[in-house]
């Protein structure tokens, strides 16, 4: 059973190798002549005003929290989708109830303006 995942491990190792190899390739052959102006972060040619790493707009976190909530819903749907033929009408009814409950949450978030940007 787990044997099917072995080839995936092999290709993963190969992919990691490719990624590291390309980075090493670039840093081996490229010239290195750093300078103060050259290394400063790009902000359309101006000296950046204020740090770039700082507290960012809270709306992005809101989206992340909502995502976790609804992604779990999707995950619950996966096994159900496979066996929906076998479990028939009861399974279908239960899942519809589950989805409806979550849909209420979705509508609540919508109504509250969590999906808006201003």
């Amino acid at each position: 059973m787990l044997m099917e995942f072995l080839p995936l491990l092999i290709i993963l190792l190969l992919a990691v190798f490719i990624g590291v190899f390309v980075v090493v390739l670039g840093s081996t052959f490229g010239p290195k002549r750093p300078g103060q102006r050259k290394n400063s972060p790009y902000e359309s040619g101006m000296v950046p005003y204020g740090p770039a790493k700082r507290r960012i707009s809270v709306r992005y976190y809101l989206i992340a929290v909502l995502f976790i909530l609804f992604d779990i819903e999707v995950v619950f749907l996966v096994p159900w989708a496979v066996v929906v033929r076998q479990i028939g009408v009861p399974g279908l009814v239960f899942m519809i109830i589950f989805v409806l409950i979550l849909e209420v949450a979705h509508l609540y978030a919508w109504k509250k303006g969590a999906l808006e940007w201003d």
Partner: peptide, 29 residues
Amino acid sequence: IFKEELIPANADKFIFLLAPIITVIPALI
């Protein structure tokens, strides 16, 4: 390959190097 690679000052160097590798791996597998 023969281009100079710049790393901006005050960048988090390790993560800066790691990010492109992390991006390309899922695409490959």
